[in-house]
Nucleic acid binder design. Structure first.
Lengths: 202, 202
DNA sequence: CAAATTTATTAAACAGTGTTCAATTATCAA
DNA sequence: TTGATAATTGAACACTGTTTAATAAATTTG
């Protein structure tokens, strides 16, 4: 079935063309301000045809969401070469924040979009789950070295993630303006260093 | 000018009626899913008339946002009686988290809605600004007692706020499910206590 | 009191949105 | 070549925020 195969490939190709157009515009204008007509126009396509390849707008975005998680995890994977768990933990935070800065829209999609999914979504955030487990064991390793004594590993992990997410979340919703005469980058990076300083004293 | 006064009052009354309707629907359905027509219908009003009382949708939203800030600040004000700045700081965090838990929708409106405002709008977050300043001076007082040595006060304040917001933001977008077999309240409160433990060691 | 003027309100319209669907074209199998 | 299948289209639907000309109500002025 060579012909059927080629057909399949052509469909995959269209799938990718749409995804590429969507990524470009989503990252340019954000989720809400990107319309299906915008995406269609980008590839000289009819708006209706998008629905032949994707169920709806959210399905397109969810593919990009998965891309985002993969992208972040790949950046974090580089740190596997860092042997000392505490050093790796500190570097992970910096990578995380840098990712948010450079991929604001991905970040919004990944962490800031309302969870309106009906079915409890089996493995929709399987990747995120794995990332958290990894983080948890990293902190566990730090504790084996004598850090964060008498802290519950899971609650502590939650706290660390919250702190990092808080920094990025304020940035992503432009709620950093109240700290005047300081750029977003200054705030986020120095703010994070304050947190690191706290960790180091513990 | 008794008549002009009454006129003024009637206008204020309509202003409030709209605001009440908007509050109800905004807190019910969130910002994006609330339409001007929804608000108008709630008080048997014409959609166009809303624009006689408010410039646009964001202006209505911003008034409710201010309400939220006032509500939160009133709860924080109670802590003025706590003399020791560090004790007050710790208690502020607990009040903040409790506010988010009890007023999830206000919290979303206050901190999680995209800032699409064009003109940097002088005093839009005047209240928030004051709250931050207050926080900043509270932390400054802690430093005078010898805590958080060699930390930049402003960056440190940003970090503390980020940590607290991170905890609440994950809660408000239901991103706590990855920490299984723990309730939201357990996570938030114990997570925060971890953070407090860090502060105490510094 | 009547006329003129200001103040409120409305319905209709505009340009945009996500999505659906009957009709149409292109592609392939028999 | 015909019939079936797959892909694409444009028009339509029901929405959205916002503007505006016409209208109604209330108030001020002559």
């Amino acid at each position: 079935m060579s012909i059927a195969e080629r057909k399949q490939e052509e469909k995959q190709e269209m799938h990718q063309r749409i995804l590429n157009a969507a990524r470009k515009i989503f990252l340019e204008k954000g989720y809400e301000k990107t319309s299906m007509r915008n995406i269609a126009a980008e590839i000289n396509y009819s708006p209706g045809s998008l629905y032949f390849h994707f169920k709806d707008k959210t399905e397109i975005f969810q593919e990009l969401q998965k891309e985002g998680f993969t992208l972040l995890l790949n950046q974090l994977k580089v740190l596997n070469s860092v042997a000392d768990p505490f050093e790796r933990l500190k570097a992970s935070g910096r990578v995380f924040i840098q990712f948010a800065q450079e991929n604001k829209d991905y970040y919004n999609l990944m962490f800031m979009v309302e969870e309106t999914v009906k079915e409890p979504s089996e493995n929709r955030f399987k990747i995120a789950q794995e990332a958290i487990n990894h983080m948890c064991s990293m902190i566990g390793d730090c504790q084996k070295q004598g850090r964060f004594k008498e802290m519950d590993t899971e609650y502590f992990t939650f706290m660390v993630l919250s702190a990092m997410h808080g920094i990025c979340a304020l940035f992503c919703k432009d709620r950093t303006t109240s700290f005047m005469n300081k750029t977003n980058e200054e705030l986020m990076e120095n703010g994070y260093e304050c947190f690191v300083a706290l960790l180091e004293k513990s």
